[in-house]
């Protein structure tokens, strides 16, 4: 590869070319087969370099990991690991043995439940609500039905688009307060985008007008409070949710972490 090619390709990749130069470069690539071939080779080298550095870093992290004491698994996590899997059983015993050994050797009593930040707890427990409201079929005419359009975006995890569509729908008189589930999924999309404050208002409104999905909405409201570090309000809701079948375990776990 000639040096002039290398500089040109470097400049193209690092964004140092003006729009005009960029267009000229791309046109040149189409008409010059030698340059196109060199460019392909250059791209392959760059990807290979990235790959090599990632592999190298992974190895360094493995070495770093081996220099740390064993990860402190929470007690309930150990129970949840498949009890019939011999591999997992072996791992658990290995972990348990390592924890005992390290404890003995350095005289440390491990504290199994460390307090976590509300935002970390949000990240660990929040998952966007699954769309069970609007059935999306292949070939649906997305222009014809705004709900389909909104839920297609939601299912594609394009939450920005989904929020815009949900808000448009809710602004229409025929939908306003008549389809609370649109609010529910709007709140979920807002949480997925890290907009905890907006989601709190959305779920509070949902709970005022809806008769269904009350427990689920309270869970998401609690998630919003966690995301916003409103620990007192989150705790109150989670204590209530601790009694529910669906969220009892998770709510209990979060409450222990908040202590």
């Amino acid at each position: 590869m000639k040096s002039k090619f290398l500089d040109m390709f470097d400049n193209y990749f690092s964004g140092e070319l003006s729009d005009q130069e960029k267009t000229a470069f791309e046109e040149h690539l189409k008409s010059d087969s030698k340059m196109a071939e060199a460019f392909q080779e250059y791209q392959d080298l760059r990807k290979g370099i990235d790959y090599s550095i990632m592999i190298g870093l992974k190895q360094e992290l493995q070495e770093l990991e081996s220099s740390f004491p064993q990860v402190e698994l929470e007690a309930d996590v150990q129970h949840r690991i498949d009890p019939v899997s011999t591999t997992n059983k072996f791992q658990i015993w290995k972990v348990a043995a390592a924890v005992v050994l390290v404890s003995l050797s350095v005289g440390v009593i491990f504290q199994l439940q460390q307090p976590s930040s509300p935002q970390d707890l949000f990240s660990q427990h929040f998952e966007p609500a699954e769309n069970l409201y609007v059935s999306i079929k292949r070939g649906d005419d997305i222009e014809a039905n705004p709900l389909v359009r909104a839920f297609q975006a939601y299912e594609a995890e394009d939450y920005t688009m989904a929020m815009a569509e949900f808000e448009t729908i809710l602004g229409q008189e025929e939908y306003k307060d008549k389809h609370p589930m649109v609010l529910y999924y709007l709140g979920s999309a807002q949480l997925a985008q890290g907009q905890g404050e907006a989601s709190i208002a959305t779920f509070e409104r949902f709970l005022e007008i809806s008769q269904d999905n009350i427990v689920q909405a309270k869970w998401y409201l609690a998630m919003g409070y966690l995301q916003q570090s409103r620990v007192g309000e989150a705790t109150l809701l989670l204590k209530e949710l601790k009694l529910s079948e669906e969220y009892g375990n998770d709510a209990g776990r979060i409450l222990r972490k908040l202590d």
Partner: peptide
């Protein structure tokens, strides 16, 4: 972030500690 993320992976997906560490390292990379 090691303890919290590895605990979360093992909890959420019932995988072994070694698998969880492996996934955590990939995420850092």
């Amino acid at each position: 972030n090691r303890d919290s993320v590895i605990n979360w992976i093992t909890h959420k997906h019932s995988c072994s500690l070694e698998e969880a560490k492996d996934i955590y390292q990939d995420a850092i990379v």
